Amino acid sequence: MMIPAERPPDDPRNAPVYLRKTLVANGHNDRTIRQLVADGVLVKVRPGGYSDKKNYDQLDAAGRHGLKARAAFQQARTDVVLSHVSGVPEYDAPTWGLDLSDVHLTRLDGKAGRHEAGVHQHCGRLRDGDVVERHGMLVMTPARLALEVTTVTSAEAGLVVVNHFLHCGMTTKDELMDRYAVMERWPNSLRTGLVLHRADARVETVGESRAVHLMLSAGLPAPIPQYEIRDEHGDVIHRVDFAWPEFGVSLEFDGKVKYEKYLKPGQRASDVVIAEKKRERRICDLTGWRCIRLDWSDLGRPAATAALIRAELYRG
């Protein structure tokens, strides 16, 4: 299992969170705290928790949730671990489709959890190795988080997280399946098995994970991810996102991140698009296959997109 390095100390996601009791102990009162917020010095990240606004303004939704989780972690009256969706940002994993409105914590005292004031406390039985320390807080490991997320979100969003952890080497399919075998009593775990069945370490991006979910949910034949294309000499010259060799069809997902990945110094996005079209022609010349291209808008209309793919697969 490969755990990524922690963020550098000056990363705005590591900005300190000031609890009200700490500010009061340093000479402030509710009036002066409100004034600091009004003046744009502090921002309230949750009741009784504040952070520097200049840092907060640099963060996306996941980063802001991280500060809110940090405040809730410090405010907890018992030992807790960041879990479920609240552990995901600590590994810089994608939060697409996750509900970040509540902080999720798991109690270590074995008592029943509760849901109040924007904090969802869980009661979970921990095994050795389930918890690590990251960025000054206790956080569930990627393997545990991957399974937990599937119990509080959709199968599609859960697959995005699970595939990310698998692709980055932070857990393995075997590890997840072994852990899943002993989680029968976890609440809301009915979709976990479905997500694990569809999970694949070869799937690289959020868009690709969503495309897999769309295709399999529609009953389409499972494609081969990251399929290698070889030239006349047998050398690998390209890779397509998905392929159905038996149907003579490949599929590419065109996302902004993908084009940014291929962007070289001095190039524009249009240069990459032109290069992609040449690459597609080369692949078609070598294989004789037809190519389907999807983008984010196609994922937002799954029924129509599944029909398009089905028609292309069974054409003729």
Rank of each mutant, 00 (worst) to 15 (best):
V212G: 02
S217D: 15
G219F: 05
L220R: 09
P221H: 04
A222L: 08
P225G: 05
P225S: 08
Q226G: 06
Y227K: 01
I229G: 05
D231L: 08
E232V: 09
E232L: 13
G234S: 05
D235Q: 12
D235G: 00
H238Q: 04
R239W: 11
R239V: 13
D241P: 06
D241Q: 07
G248A: 10
V249A: 02
S250Q: 10
L251D: 00
F253W: 02
F253T: 02
D254W: 07
D254V: 03
D254A: 10
V257C: 00
K258P: 04
E260V: 08
E260Q: 14
K261H: 14
Y262M: 14
Y262D: 11
Y262G: 03
L263Q: 12
K264H: 12
P265E: 07
G266Q: 06
A269P: 03
S270I: 14
S270K: 10
D271G: 04
V272P: 04
V272E: 06
I274Y: 13
I274N: 04
A275H: 06
K277F: 06
K278V: 06
R279I: 01
R282Q: 14
R282L: 12
R282C: 05
D285F: 10
T287R: 11
R290K: 14
R290H: 11
C291I: 15
C291V: 15
L294F: 10
D295L: 00
